[in-house]
């Protein structure tokens, strides 16, 4: 009775024994503004030379919008360049949507993302020093970029965090070997 339970436990624990995982928490703050649009958000890992090692997430309006006055449809990709650092470092080289990375904009609140090094986009990330970058740009609102430096792969569990000031709230970055 006890032995199979132990085996089951080992089986469940097995993936984490081989794969490093990261949990990313992104807070989009609630805004008290007359005109609110959900922010565009890009999350990526950059090398020390600021080149992009991995795109983790891109949240944008992936359906066409309609201009209220002219009725003319306007693709949401139009505003991707407002994520100006991401656009410069990676976006302009990409064809949207990016499979497994891009998705719709998200509402104010806490958002959790989990990645593991046996799957894209972390698979193959070479050992070294990196920076996690979270960039947010909101229509008729502001722009903010928050970064967290880290080393990969993690040798021990690490709980890193940073605090945005206006367009982003708390950013939590937990690394587990």
């Amino acid at each position: 009775m006890r032995v199979p339970a132990l085996i089951a436990c080992l089986a469940l624990a097995a993936p984490s024994a081989f794969a490093a995982t990261v949990q990313l928490g992104i807070e989009i703050p609630r805004m008290d503004v007359s005109e609110y649009h959900r922010p565009y958000v890009a999350v990526w890992i950059e090398r020390e030379d600021r080149s992009v090692a991995a795109n983790l997430a891109v949240w944008y309006q992936n359906k066409d919008g309609k201009d209220a006055q002219s009725g003319k449809s306007e693709p949401g990709t139009k505003w991707l360049a407002d994520l100006r650092q991401w656009w410069r470092r990676s976006g302009r080289e990409q064809t949207l949507p990016i499979d497994g990375v891009s998705g719709a904009t998200r509402p104010a609140g806490q958002h959790q993302l989990t990645f593991s090094d046996d799957k894209a986009p972390l698979a193959g990330l070479a050992a070294g020093k990196y920076r996690l970058v979270v960039e947010a740009a909101r229509e008729v609102g502001g722009h903010e970029l928050v970064g967290i430096a880290f080393e990969w792969p993690p040798q021990a569990p690490q709980h890193l965090s940073a605090q945005g000031e206006h367009e982003l709230g708390a950013i939590r970055f937990d690394l587990n070997p």
Partner: peptide, 9 residues
Amino acid sequence: TVLSEGSDA
């Protein structure tokens, strides 16, 4: 001067 692709630019 910097525009995103995929739009009616």
